[in-house]
Write a protein that binds this DNA or RNA. Structure first.
Lengths: 344, 344
DNA sequence: ATGAAATTTACAATCGATTACATTATAACT
DNA sequence: AGTTATAATGTAATCGATTGTAAATTTCAT
């Protein structure tokens, strides 16, 4: 590598001190207009670029933030990340993305690895908890590294978060099914120690109770957000003596699996069984049988998460006033749940 | 933040020098077993963690590498990244992921931004070129920062790359269509200044020529890898006087768009028109009408790319022997192109 | 013209880890 | 015992940028 020009090189060339160069470049008010201009020009001339590592060492800030998500090949997380980048890049931050693949061990590894890389903060969506302890976050909290949850959060005192109103999203999705005349609505849930899934479950339950339908706990099945899991569960449901006539899934992926299984059994959607997903993944729109889903405005979520981080990192006070931002979800009705209007 | 313990703290506690601590921790052979153990123990005791920034400054290595891709919400790129991470994490590297969204300007921005962050190398899949100049890479090359292309490459002297044999993949896909009896095969191409698209085009062309079919340049359409673009183009093709009876698309996304449009026109797949995509995105398998596609073994590609990087970065010699790794693609035949065997 | 105030720039320490070189302690050998 | 080889540790410079404090220079008023 060609050796980079440093402020010392500039200083030598101009017969001044590195200190002056540094101040000139940083807009320190104690520097005369004349030298500032001179310095800036020669800096450009010599292709000077600030050595971030040196600056990081001095300031204690790396201008790197870690983003931890279960996976990046879902449109939802990819979009959140995009939102985060849009907000953080202009401020000079870089984003290090880590995937947990929903494994607690990888989550731990990622956190340590990010701490080791001296990140200025961690924005994360937690993975499914194999067990209940939160040692993972302890390391972050102990070191006082700003931690912000988005979407999949845990309630931890003092930790900010940006989420959507999952209860409301689930409630409206379920209500939509009820309004369409479906009576026996199953719910494909997920690990309910993660709040979003708990809230989706609660929203579903409340909608059923509010409508006077019978709530049947046996129609709530906990599974993972994977197509094949959806198929497996749906198969079981279809074999029930009194099978459901609608599915509200907490994930688009399981919803997709369910749809495949239903078709394979020769049933029609939405005539025989209706399906609603969650997240508004692009494929829900692109399917021939487009899937009704709940949009979570992921880019907006990413932007907000980044903003909360910036606020925290820029507040010199240790006020750590925890902030809970909650977005409103939007139900997108598509073919998979829309019964053709009854013909007279 | 709690102040971290440094090697000086350890040194003070043991009444030795920071230098000794450093050497002990780094396994320098000039340190006695006794003090080494002592140092290691107290380090653990005091929760010592190496300050990467300081080390980076001293060594000139940041242990960060940049990965630039058009987007991360495609399974292909997400998987390549996963492969890269699997290879690089154990070696202590971190991966900074940047998206270009196929915009040249963002590509430029990302490269500069990564250089500014002092990355030790850049692994990238180039975005569509709005124009022909390669100034983007010049900055990297000039600074002698290891650059490695994967998948979407440009031929630049001295730059290594990891790709698949796109020609072969396209050839076999097209041959498969010909073998199925299709005679008028259109090709949805993409910016052919990017080699993968050029090679897919050439493979398609060669397969047609080899089979004795007539090659019709007007059946080759250049478009972008988006569902809606696929629809648009397909609409035009269907309006042709002598419309194609098969489509070989260089992208799964345009293939999907094409399929939607074909169905909307009341035609049957694969009876009336057959469709083959490229990349083996998960949705190609999950569709009710599963889509024939070409698998690119993305995780393997990622791992190999990372390996090539490690080789380059660890070779103190400036040998810069460029390395071209080429993987073999695999055609996955599915419903969208498989004619039911003729019944007698 | 002279002292005080204001402005500008230089000096030197610092962030934490690494490392060439110097120094001390220990062992070995004649 | 004396000399040398060897092992173990210390000293101090270095990476590049920042910043409190000191010093130099200029400006201004009298």
């Amino acid at each position: 590598m060609k050796k980079k020009t440093t402020i010392y090189d500039i200083a030598k060339k101009l017969n001044i001190t590195a200190a002056t160069v540094s101040r000139a470049l940083n807009g320190n008010s104690k520097i005369s207009e004349a030298t500032r201009k001179l310095v800036e020009e020669t800096a450009k001339e010599m292709n000077y670029e600030q050595n971030r590592l040196a600056q990081a060492l001095k300031s204690g800030k790396s201008y790197n933030v870690g983003v931890i998500v279960p996976r990046i090949d879902s449109n939802f997380f990819a979009s959140v990340i995009r939102g985060i980048e849009e907000e953080l890049y202009p401020k000079g931050y870089h984003v290090i993305i880590c995937q947990t693949h929903d494994q607690k061990s990888l989550e731990t590894e990622n956190i340590n690895s990010l701490l080791n890389a001296q990140v200025d903060g961690v924005l994360m969506s937690i993975s499914q908890a194999q067990n209940a302890n939160d040692d993972n976050f302890d390391a972050l909290i102990k070191k006082n590294v700003p931690l912000i949850f988005f979407d999949r959060k845990k309630d931890i005192k003092g930790i900010s978060s940006v989420t959507i109103d999952d209860f409301k999203g689930a409630y409206e999705a379920t209500k939509h099914l009820i309004d369409q005349g479906y009576k026996r609505i199953a719910h494909l849930s997920n690990d309910r120690s993660i709040l979003i899934f708990k809230n989706r479950y609660l929203g579903y339950k409340q909608a059923i109770l509010d409508s006077g339908l019978e709530f049947d706990e046996s129609l709530v099945i906990e599974t993972q957000s994977k197509v094949l899991e959806g198929r497996k569960i749906m198969k079981q449901l279809l074999e029930l003596e009194h099978r459901p006539d609608a599915i509200f899934s907490s994930s688009d992926f399981t919803a997709l699996g369910a749809i495949q299984e239903i078709k394979e059994h020769g049933l029609n959607i939405p005539e025989d069984i209706s399906v609603v997903g969650f997240s508004n993944e692009p494929f829900t729109r692109f399917m021939e049988l487009s899937i009704t889903s709940v949009d979570q405005s992921p880019i907006e979520m990413g932007r907000l998460t980044a903003q909360v981080f910036l606020e925290e990192v820029n507040s010199d006070k240790r006020v750590t006033s925890e902030k809970q931002v909650v977005l409103t979800p939007e139900l997108i009705v598509r073919k998979s749940s829309l019964r053709t209007p009854v013909k007279h």
